[in-house]
């Protein structure tokens, strides 16, 4: 039996385990009845590494992300994760309580639509503080202080801590969602089109912020996007999906500069240069 302590306690010496993958996906497959979601997707993700998953709509990127996050039941395959005590465990073998605790402390999930990832009727401070309260913080002053410092880090005026996200712009909502996910110092963040639906200048600012946070906190991240520029800026490695399968993967610069697959070549050449 795994206790809460193993999931939430401070990290043990990461350097010792740096050559062990943080997350291993093995043969992830999802069928929606006779319709294929994704098939036989395998990869390894190391601590501090950002992996981009690109592909057109319907290529299975979002399905893959939902499988990893436990939001969908997979048809076959498994996901292994290295917990903070250093032991790598099959997520399906954890109890539901352990899995949920893991997802809200050691993992983050940034939704494309911020209204799904936030409590829209709760103030910004409450949104950021929720995960803290869920892991047992019971001191209002300290929760509020932590929320303020996180708002500041994601470039939201801490003065607006008591406003609900309804009064925030799209970019601010997205940044608030990021703060809400990062407040428990997770080691892995899953992002589904984090810049989708934002205008270009807001996108640039958000990407800048994400890049900085990922670097500062040593986060591992899996970013699903259809925007190759996002992949280029954020990720070290890239996985190209088509029709539910991974057709090409490698270092981001390598894949984008010298795509091997015809589909990837098409994808890269479809980007309109300014």
């Amino acid at each position: 039996m795994l206790d809460a302590d193993v999931i939430t306690r401070t990290r043990i010496d990461e350097a010792e385990l740096a050559d062990e993958p943080l997350l291993i996906a093995e043969g992830l497959t999802k069928w929606y009845g006779r319709q294929l979601g994704c098939r036989d997707v395998s990869f390894e993700l190391y601590a501090g590494e950002v992996l981009a998953v690109v592909g057109e709509s319907g290529s299975g990127k979002s399905t893959l992300l939902q499988l990893l996050a436990g939001q969908l039941a997979m048809s076959s395959g498994r996901v292994l994760y290295r917990l903070r005590d250093g032991a790598t465990r099959d997520l399906a073998m954890l109890t539901e309580a352990e899995r949920r605790l893991l997802f809200r402390t050691d993992w983050g999930f940034v939704q494309q639509d911020a209204t799904l990832g936030l409590r829209m009727s709760v103030s910004a401070g409450g949104n950021v503080g929720e995960r803290l309260m869920a892991v047992g913080w019971r001191h209002y002053g300290r929760i509020r202080h932590e929320a303020e410092s996180w708002l500041d880090r994601v470039e939201i005026d801490p003065e607006r801590i008591d406003e609900t996200p309804r009064s925030f712009s799209g970019g601010m909502r997205q940044r608030l969602q990021i703060a809400r996910n990062l407040v428990t110092a997770p080691r892995l963040v899953l992002m589904d089109e984090p810049t989708g639906g934002l205008d270009v200048s807001v996108q640039a600012r958000l990407l800048d912020l994400l890049r900085r946070l990922v670097q500062d906190l040593g986060l591992a991240a899996i970013v699903v996007t259809h925007d190759l520029a996002v992949a280029r800026l954020l990720s070290q490695r890239i996985m190209v999906m088509k029709g539910g399968r991974v057709i090409e993967q490698g270092l981001t610069d390598q894949v984008l500069d010298d795509p091997q697959q015809p589909y990837t070549q098409l994808l890269v050449s479809s980007v309109v240069p300014v």
Binding site: R119, V122, S123, G126, G129, E130, M133, R138, R144, I161
Partner: peptide
């Protein structure tokens, strides 16, 4: 955890 979010909102407002 969400129960305390409600109380947090009370104090904040």
């Amino acid at each position: 955890g969400v129960m305390h979010v409600k109380l947090y909102e009370d104090i904040a407002h």
